[in-house]
Structures are given as structure tokens and as C-alpha cells.
């Protein structure tokens, strides 16, 4: 009775994606401006190689895995709370608010401690996300497409405020780097905040059933005894902390939270208990692939992974929109 075809299906994908993440990680460890082969670690170990591996390549690869997984899960949770599949943190103001927070830190107290910056960015993210959810509650929703549009307008407003401030304080270049995330500056000692994001992702996985219930709507949640408002508030905090940590470490990374959950739902549906592990793994794989592509395309220079994500992500988003035309209208 318990061995439904969907569960078998999910397990096969789980194995396939784990392998994919593993393969991409190995490639990621081998690719970079400086020539290195992981095998040399065994055949001709020297200080330069171990140094490069443990100070740069390994932290970068780990950061990619953690950021990709947690951002994809954050997107899924946000979609449950907004009850809409066409949104993700960078489309509703969550990311832009975090970037505004980081910008204010740079203006008010340059060189502020990392965890403090993270705290400020989280507070801004929470505010931005709550603003979006509040506006959403107050407008009549005639079509599912209204939801991302409202989010994009809000994100745009926050983005413009940041732009103006950055211009005033001559931080435009810094803002640009926060708005387009990349992992080229990630070294040992400069990515560990992402473990917080990963921990929060685990917490979200633990609460998977509750977030599925939230996705079914307020009445459904109330009927089964889930505190809708309380859990939504907690969900906003979880999503914001994940987003804030990635913005502080790497910058904005668009579309992962949108396309990964939408692709996974085609495989395993929306029961988060099954979907979250797949979403996390697929998020890591996408992030690794985007970063690798950025490192290889104009080697030895780099294209920020945010740009790769934006180009490929918007294409996939268009396909999702066109495929589900009837559903959204």
C-alpha cells in the first residue's frame, strides 16, 4: 500500500541527482584559473595543490552546493506561502530588500562584522517579504500572473531606492556586485555563513508537512489544526535568512528558487515531504553547473553565475509559462 509508483519514482530521481551533484562537484574542484587536477593530490602532492584545494576550490564548491540547495528550497517555501508557482525571492522584493540592507551597512558602518551584516540583511528581507504578502492579501487576484507582477513591481521599487542611495554614496559598483551574485571571491573563512542557510533548509525539511498544508490555503490549514499565521511568519523568517546569507556571501542569485521547484513538481508533485530533498539536490546541481559554465566560457576570466542563471532561468521560466498557459490565466 505504501509503495506507490510516485515513491519509487522519487527514489530513482534522488539517486540520479545525488550522482549528478557529486560529478559536478568533482569537476568544480578541478576547474579554475589555476591549473590543477584532483588526481595530483595523490600522485604528486605538494603544498600549492593542497593550498589551492582547501583554501579556494573546496570552499567554493561547498558554497555552491549549500547556496543552490537552500535557495531552491527557499523558493519552494515562498511559493507555498504565496500560493503561487510563479514567484521566487528575487521576484518579490526579498532579495532586493536584503541587498538594500547590505548597502546601508556599507554606508553606515563600512567593514561591519559579517554576522551583523547578515542580521541587518535578514531584517530587511523579512520586511520586504511581509510587504509583498500583505499587498497580495489586499488585492483581488483575477489571475495567477498578477502575483509575480505585484512582486516585480515591489522588487523594482526597492531596487530603485538602493540604486539612488548607492549613487549618492558612490557605491554603485558595490551594489552591482551584490545584485549579480558570483562565487569567485569565496575562500575559506568567507563562506561559512552558508551553513546557516543549510541548517535552515533542514529545518524547513523537518516542517515539510506543515508547509504543504500552508500551500493548501488558510481554511485547509486551520481545519487540520495548523496555525496559519504563525507558520507563515516563521516561513518568511526562514526564507529571509536563507536569502540574506546568500546575498551577503555571493550576491543575488536569481531564478534558482523559481525553476527548480517547478521542474521538480513535474516529477514528484507538491507534497513537500517528497519534493524538498529533490529540490535541494537539483538546486545544488543547477548552481554548480551555472558556476562551472561561468568559469569555463571565457577562461581564464569568469562570468558571474548570476548572469548565467538569469539567461538560462528566464528561458526556462518562459517555457513554464507557455506550457501552463491555461493554468495561469
Amino acid at each position: 500500500m505504501n509503495s506507490s509508483p510516485i515513491k519509487h519514482h522519487t527514489v530513482s530521481w534522488l539517486i540520479a541527482l545525488t550522482l549528478l551533484v557529486f560529478v559536478l562537484s568533482v569537476i568544480s574542484l578541478n576547474v579554475g584559473a589555476s591549473r590543477m587536477n584532483l588526481l595530483h593530490l595523490f600522485t604528486q602532492p605538494d603544498d600549492r595543490i593542497t593550498q589551492l584545494l582547501f583554501v579556494s576550490r573546496w570552499p567554493r564548491t561547498l558554497a555552491l552546493i549549500l547556496a543552490g540547495a537552500s535557495l531552491a528550497v527557499a523558493g519552494l517555501i515562498l511559493q507555498m506561502m504565496a500560493r503561487n508557482r510563479l514567484v521566487e525571492p528575487s521576484m518579490v522584493g526579498t532579495v532586493d530588500a536584503a541587498a538594500l540592507g547590505v548597502l546601508l551597512c556599507a554606508i553606515v558602518a563600512p567593514g561591519m562584522a559579517l554576522w551583523l551584516k547578515f542580521g541587518v540583511a535578514t531584517a530587511f528581507s523579512v520586511t520586504g517579504t511581509l510587504l509583498f504578502l500583505t499587498v497580495l492579501k489586499r488585492i483581488p487576484l483575477r489571475s495567477a500572473l498578477i502575483v509575480p507582477l505585484v512582486g516585480l513591481v515591489l522588487a523594482g521599487v526597492i531596487h530603485a531606492v538602493s540604486g539612488l542611495l548607492a549613487h549618492q554614496f558612490e557605491l554603485s559598483q558595490a551594489l552591482r556586485s551584490w545584485n549579480s551574485g558570483d562565487f569567485s571571491a569565496v575562500l575559506r573563512g568567507r563562506y561559512e555563513l552558508l551553513w546557516v542557510a543549510a541548517g535552515i533548509m533542514l529545518l524547513a525539511a523537518f516542517l515539510a508537512d506543515r508547509f504543504t498544508v500552508i500551500g493548501m490555503g488558510k481554511d485547509f490549514a486551520t481545519n487540520v489544526g495548523v496555525n496559519y499565521q504563525g507558520l507563515t511568519a516563521f516561513g518568511v523568517l526562514l526564507v529571509s535568512m536563507i536569502v540574506a546569507s546568500t546575498v551577503v556571501i555571493a550576491g543575488a542569485l536569481p531564478f534558482i528558487g523559481l525553476i527548480v521547484p517547478n521542474l521538480v513538481r513535474l516529477i514528484t508533485g507538491d507534497n513537500l515531504r517528497r519534493a524538498i530533498p529533490l529540490v535541494a539536490l537539483a538546486g545544488s546541481a543547477l548552481m554548480l553547473a551555472a558556476d562551472l559554465l561561468g568559469r569555463v566560457l571565457i577562461h581564464p576570466y569568469e562570468i558571474p553565475s548570476a548572469n548565467i542563471l538569469a539567461i538560462s532561468g528566464s528561458l526556462v521560466f518562459l517555457i513554464i509559462l507557455l506550457r501552463g498557459r491555461k493554468q495561469w490565466a
Binding site: S4, I6, R83, N84, R85, A144, D209, T212, V213, G215, M216, F220, V224, G225, V226, R265, G269, D270, N271, Q327
Partner: peptide
């Protein structure tokens, strides 16, 4: 708008 199976939905009654 969630893609749940019938059994998943019924199981939420036990939540």
C-alpha cells in the same frame, strides 16, 4: 494549485 495525490490529500486528514 498544489499537485498532491489523492492518498497524500487523505493522509493530511490524519495530521
Amino acid at each position: 494549485t498544489l499537485r498532491l495525490t489523492v492518498r497524500d490529500l487523505v493522509a493530511f486528514g490524519r495530521f
